[in-house]
Computed example of a mutant assay.
Amino acid sequence: MIHMQFGIFTVGDVTPDPTTGREPTENERIKAMTAIALKAEEVGLDVFATGEHHNPPFVPSSPTTMLGWIAAKTEKLILSTSTTLITTNDPVKIAEDFAMLQHLADGRVDLMMGRGNTGPVYPWFGKDIRQGIPLAIENYALLHKLWREDVVDWEGRFRTPLQGFTSTPRPLDGVAPFVWHGSIRSPEIAEQAAYYGDGFFANNIFWPRDHFKRLIDLYRERFAFYGHGTPDQAIVGAGGQFFMRKNSQDAVREFRPYFDNAPVYGHGPSMEEFTRETPLVVGSPQEVIEKTLSYRQTYGDYQRQLFLVDHAGLPLKTVLEQLDLLGEILPTLRAEFAKGRPDTVPDAPTHAALVAKRDADLTDPVSA
């Protein structure tokens, strides 16, 4: 079993390279994302996750299409999302799309629910952003039901009722894909993850870690409150961000123009301020190891670490070099995170583990 999964996530931005001024085409960016996923498996990473966006300058509007292509080209990689928009997508379509992907990928699928952070998307899909939290709660309640009940009768506020409805295909082996609930600010989402006993992912790349520690602590406390186990048995994931070179000074010099011009944080705090306050680390492999290990001190033992590596106009060649370097430090990260990890802390979720737990619960319903 893998105690902890390491992987990468992409937001799929199309951003000009500030050192050359060249902007990739949408086709180039999509092909780059798939190349990055294949490289992730090659260097020994466990997870590739894509965002979902429906507005320029982003390209990943159809995550399951991309992940289905990657599934056909990989053997071990878990295919996930760094956001599946539970607010603006129809839960019925999510249920169908990800169950289909689950079958095609032989179970190497999970997904992360999110509300999205782009206001105009809501009316494009006939929704009201002011209902963001209620939409997230109601839509996920329906999705959860669709994957677990063969015939569903359902009525809610935000979509037409369902009568005698069966979502097809049914989940592989009768076990739904594992779900993470991602949030950067909403205690309601931490509460939702805890209620269902699902995973909680703190996408902590832009804010100080103390903010996310409060959300994770809340999730752990409520996970125990709902009877799913002790707080340290809750399933936690965290975001991260790095740019590394063998020599720290080289990393700082090379990444600075990308940082300074990045759409998401350029023209704001300095790179040095940002690396002090957030998970971003720009430096040597040893510095990346040390910063990543420090999350454990803040959040406790957790199950999934995803890094953002392909944004801000970084060329594909550079991103692939970053993944080679990550592959080199991966054995150290695995070994260090395993040290002193209590036996009570669950391993990272996989389809095989979920099937085994389901089967064990069926034979011993008292422990279920």
Rank of each mutant, 00 (worst) to 15 (best):
M1S: 13
T15G: 05
T20G: 07
R22W: 03
E23W: 02
R29Y: 04
M33R: 08
M33L: 15
G44Y: 00
G51Y: 00
E52K: 01
H54W: 04
S61A: 15
P63G: 06
P63S: 04
A72G: 14
K76T: 03
K76S: 11
L79Q: 07
T87P: 02
D90P: 09
V92N: 07
K93N: 09
A95G: 06
D97A: 14
L104A: 14
D110K: 08
M113E: 12
M113W: 12
G116F: 02
N117T: 11
G119A: 14
Y122G: 12
G132Y: 04
A141E: 13
W147G: 07
V152C: 06
R159C: 05
T160P: 08
G164A: 06
T166F: 06
R170D: 06
P171M: 06
P171G: 05
D173T: 04
A176P: 00
H181E: 08
I184M: 15
R185I: 15
N204L: 03
P208L: 10
L215W: 02
D217W: 02
P231W: 00
G239E: 00
R245A: 06
Q249T: 09
Q249R: 08
F255W: 13
F255N: 14
R256S: 14
Y258E: 03
D260E: 15
G266E: 04
E277I: 14
T278K: 01
V281M: 04
V282L: 04
D301R: 01
Q303L: 02
L316P: 06
T318A: 10
T318H: 02
L325I: 05
T332I: 13
R334T: 07
E336R: 11
K339H: 03
P342A: 05
V345H: 06
T350M: 01
A353L: 11
V355S: 03
A360R: 14
